Amino acid sequence: MSLGGQPMSPRRHSVSVTEPVTTDPLWCEEYGYGLGRTGGILVLKYRSAGALEFGENRQDFLHQLYWSPDGMLSSRYGARTQFVGQREAFWAHRAVTHEVRAADRQTVYRLCLREVPAALGGLRAGAVSVNPEAARLIQAIARRTCDESEALAARTRIMAGLGPTTADFVGHHATGTGFALTVARALSHDPGDEAGLAEWAERLHVSVKTLQRDFEREFGMPYSKVRTKLRLSTSRVLLETRPVADVAHRVGYSSPSAFITAFTKEYGCTPGRYAGRGHEL
């Protein structure tokens, strides 16, 4: 990674692609700005026809941030597995061994840094909130038309737009009371949580009506539909390596048949055929 300070031409990287395909299985574009300096940043933009897997990864000199604008990420460090939604990223401090997975046809941005963002000091690894400006700027600097001065200015704002807590997450994204976003963040981390709307309302000390209204305001759909979409999005990351019955249980379905019905309605094919048709979805 000892590269020059200008945006670099797209370059291939050997990241595991679970599903073999006959066309280009993986594309990675690489952009480096101010590298070799504390204030530099390296951005790797991946997209694959099959599932992406960053397995048993460890960097002793660089901190890493993984973010996807269009799907869930599955992360593991130590004995802990956590799922990360589009409004969050997975942070790994240098020298922390970790794994990250994404589903097929999903874009993943991987930022490598020498400096720890101020809000993430002391965090070894875990899900962090990404505010809308930071999300926009991550995509903006991963292109050949971005010059170094613009990218380094954007890097400062990206780092300022990260936060590790639920309060940060709600503060970054809420347009309403924030209750619905608090629930959605918890569900994205653990989609198998079986709590219904009434139980969540009790946990948050609000009425069911208030919470449902906040879901409609934030997402334009009721709680049940938000939960279903999160569960199915998460299942796509898991299906490449786990049996359908195991995935159904992990994402909160009472039976494989209920999961198969919901998955087929959403994606147009059964989970059992997904590994073979994932690149067509």
Results as ranks from 00 to 15, higher is better:
residue 76 R to P: 02
residue 69 P to I: 11
residue 228 T to W: 07
residue 279 H to Y: 14
residue 163 G to C: 02
residue 36 G to Y: 01
residue 199 E to F: 06
residue 226 V to R: 12
residue 202 E to Y: 10
residue 10 P to I: 07
residue 107 T to A: 04
residue 256 P to D: 09
residue 277 R to L: 13
residue 228 T to K: 14
residue 99 E to L: 11
residue 42 L to N: 04
residue 48 S to Y: 03
residue 198 A to R: 10
residue 133 E to H: 12
residue 100 V to G: 05
residue 163 G to V: 00
residue 30 E to W: 11
residue 76 R to Y: 07
residue 80 R to W: 01
residue 40 G to D: 07
residue 174 A to L: 08
residue 201 A to F: 04
residue 50 G to K: 02
residue 219 F to T: 05
residue 268 G to M: 12
residue 208 V to C: 12
residue 60 D to C: 03
residue 7 P to E: 02
residue 267 Y to C: 08
residue 193 D to Q: 03
residue 212 Q to W: 10
residue 119 A to F: 09
residue 31 Y to H: 13
residue 16 S to Y: 08
residue 93 H to W: 01
residue 208 V to P: 01
residue 201 A to W: 01
residue 73 L to W: 05
residue 257 S to W: 02
residue 234 T to P: 05
residue 205 H to W: 02
residue 13 H to S: 10
residue 186 A to L: 13
residue 3 L to A: 09
residue 227 R to E: 11
residue 76 R to K: 15
residue 146 C to T: 14
residue 201 A to D: 09
residue 128 V to I: 15
residue 219 F to Y: 12
residue 27 W to E: 15
residue 248 A to D: 05
residue 150 E to I: 06
residue 76 R to L: 03
residue 80 R to H: 07
residue 204 L to F: 03
residue 92 A to Y: 04
residue 51 A to C: 14
residue 51 A to P: 08
residue 134 A to Q: 03
residue 233 S to M: 07
residue 36 G to H: 10
residue 101 R to E: 14
residue 50 G to N: 08
residue 169 F to C: 05
residue 18 T to W: 15
residue 206 V to A: 03
residue 144 R to W: 08
residue 16 S to W: 11
residue 271 P to W: 00
residue 16 S to R: 15
residue 136 R to W: 13
residue 160 A to M: 08
residue 205 H to G: 11
residue 61 F to L: 14
residue 98 H to G: 03
residue 248 A to F: 02
residue 124 R to D: 15
residue 1 M to A: 12
residue 186 A to I: 11
residue 103 A to V: 04
residue 92 A to H: 02
residue 80 R to A: 09
residue 213 R to M: 09
residue 138 I to W: 05
residue 219 F to H: 07
residue 263 F to Q: 00
residue 276 G to A: 15
residue 66 Y to Q: 10
residue 41 I to W: 09
residue 147 D to W: 00
residue 238 L to R: 00
residue 21 V to G: 13
residue 212 Q to M: 13
residue 190 D to M: 07
residue 223 Y to E: 08
residue 2 S to W: 08
residue 188 S to I: 03
residue 253 Y to E: 01
residue 51 A to N: 12
residue 79 A to Q: 00
residue 12 R to G: 14
residue 196 G to R: 04
residue 273 R to C: 11
residue 256 P to V: 05
residue 72 M to V: 13
residue 228 T to Y: 07
residue 13 H to K: 11
residue 32 G to C: 10
